[in-house]
Design a protein around this nucleic acid. Structure first.
Lengths: 156, 156
DNA sequence: CGCATATGATAAGCAGGCTTACGGTTGGGA
DNA sequence: TCCCAACCGTAAGCCTGCTTATCATATGCG
């Protein structure tokens, strides 16, 4: 008899991710921010000067979703929108010193969380899980109607 | 040199889950419903007559979040709230015939999706992934401040 | 050159999660 | 008995995602 293992894995995957997101959210709030805003600042930390469309594409978000995140970050003076001298429609995005300080503080928290939740899992299992996840992503991407296509990374 | 494998797994886990949720959402919409509402109906399919608090606990949702999902389902005549004869504060939740028909239609879609995204992954990998996910859930649960505690299932 | 089309950002409004706060009901202890 | 804490459901309002539509600006084709 074949238990529906695949169904179970899909369910547990979403469930685990939900728990993890909640925990990360909680850790973010301890630093006065949110998971989504943290994500934006992390990207900008690695690469400043992007415009909103490019950042939205990198983050696989709709431009409008990102725009409102940026509104909140800007209100808190954590990022700034500078007018693009070459394109009057566009802004270029930069962290403020406060934003940079916050995201620098937050970076080690990622590693801390990863070790908290995965500390006693051996590396072979982690590698195996990464492969399985990668297979899922590939299959899922080919089946999902394009919304915010990642453009690079998978041939048609 | 130790690559941050654990950090990578946490990231890919959330990323994979997000993709998967989007795909499931898309499949749900093809049947005129949403992932969240599908989840509610699936639970009720297995167990009717619950009150909202009990269902919220089972689904790990805040009662108010569930209440609004139920509002939408009720407006579509997919579920009904019947007054609890023994407790005038509470409702008991039931699928309508339409709701039952819909969720019966949807059930095989779960299996279909699971095979689409995991079809060519061998069972050993799936079992391994399930174990890893389980370890993550356990660690995460012990570290997350209780919000909607699952009550049963993990000893203190 | 000039106009059609594509692109950057935003607005409006929906869905689904949350916190906080509240009114009605129950039920247990003094 | 009665009274208050706990519990059921909900309202208001926030955050973050979405779709659809609009405005201003760039750009490329004829």
């Amino acid at each position: 008899m074949k238990r529906p293992l695949r169904r179970e894995l899909v369910f547990q995957l979403v469930e685990t991710s939900r728990l993890l997101r909640t925990y990360v959210e909680q850790r973010a709030r301890q630093h006065g921010t949110t998971r989504a805003q943290w994500g934006v600042m992390s990207r900008l930390r690695r690469q400043e000067g992007l415009n909103q469309a490019a950042l939205a594409e990198q983050m696989d978000l709709q431009p409008i979703s990102l725009a409102r995140l940026l509104d909140r970050l800007q209100n808190q003076s954590l990022i700034e929108r500078r007018e693009d001298p070459a394109d009057r429609r566009a802004y270029r995005l930069y962290l403020t010193p406060e934003g940079r300080a916050l995201v620098d503080d937050l970076d080690p928290v990622r590693t801390e969380i990863a070790h908290e939740v995965l500390g006693d899992v051996d590396e072979a299992s982690i590698l195996s899980a990464l492969e399985t996840l990668s297979a899922i992503r590939e299959q899922t991407r080919t089946r999902t109607e394009d919304r915010a296509p990642a453009s690079a990374g998978h041939a048609a």
